[in-house]
């Protein structure tokens, strides 16, 4: 008998409590993000896909030294250098296989020219494997451009790793 009573009380008291929670959230802003339409901002240290930086005059920073490829633990970077007309070294081919990439950021750390950066982007799904091999043209930032999208990241990298200052 007492058990029936207890169950009754539960239904009377606890159920509204439970519905109360539901009701409460009905009027709150939902945490669910409408992903394709809506995106959450990533943390400052999030490591997304790679960008290749340029100098202010538009020339590519990357000299194809191969240190990023050497540092890459997943062997995801492939590059072929070439010589420009005035004897500079630059990348003829620069490819990152984003399927292999583990986004560890070692390439960014190894780069002596501050050319490669991991950006905040994470959308690079594709329907075939070849599309995951990103080429230099895809990664090279646009030039000229008003606001450098990487400035913040560069600032952060410099804060973390320091800047070679002229004494």
């Amino acid at each position: 008998m007492t058990e029936i009573l207890k169950a009754f009380v539960n239904v009377i008291i606890k159920m509204p409590q439970g519905f109360g929670v539901t009701l409460k959230y009905l009027f709150r802003k939902p945490v669910t993000v409408q992903y394709p339409k809506q995106k959450i901002p990533m943390t400052p240290r999030y490591r997304g896909r790679h960008y290749l930086e340029r100098y202010d005059d538009g020339t590519e920073r990357c000299v194809c030294c191969g240190l990023c490829a050497a540092a890459c633990p997943a062997d995801a970077i492939y590059m072929e250098p070439e010589e420009t007309a005035n004897g500079e070294r630059k990348a003829k081919v620069y490819e990152i296989n984003l399927l292999r990439c583990i986004f560890c950021g070692f390439c960014e750390e190894a780069c002596p020219e501050e050319a490669v950066f991991l950006g905040q982007d994470y959308e690079f799904s594709a329907d075939n494997r070849n599309s995951f091999i990103w080429t230099k043209d895809q990664m090279l930032v646009k030039h000229p451009r008003k606001e450098n999208p990487l400035k913040r990241i560069i600032r952060r990298v410099r804060r973390v790793y320091g800047v070679p200052t002229a004494k």
Binding site: C64, C65, G66, A69, A70, E80, P81, E82, E83, R89
Partner: peptide
């Protein structure tokens, strides 16, 4: 050899 490849590769 110039600007072709890195020796460690």
């Amino acid at each position: 050899w110039r600007y072709k490849i890195r020796v460690w590769l």
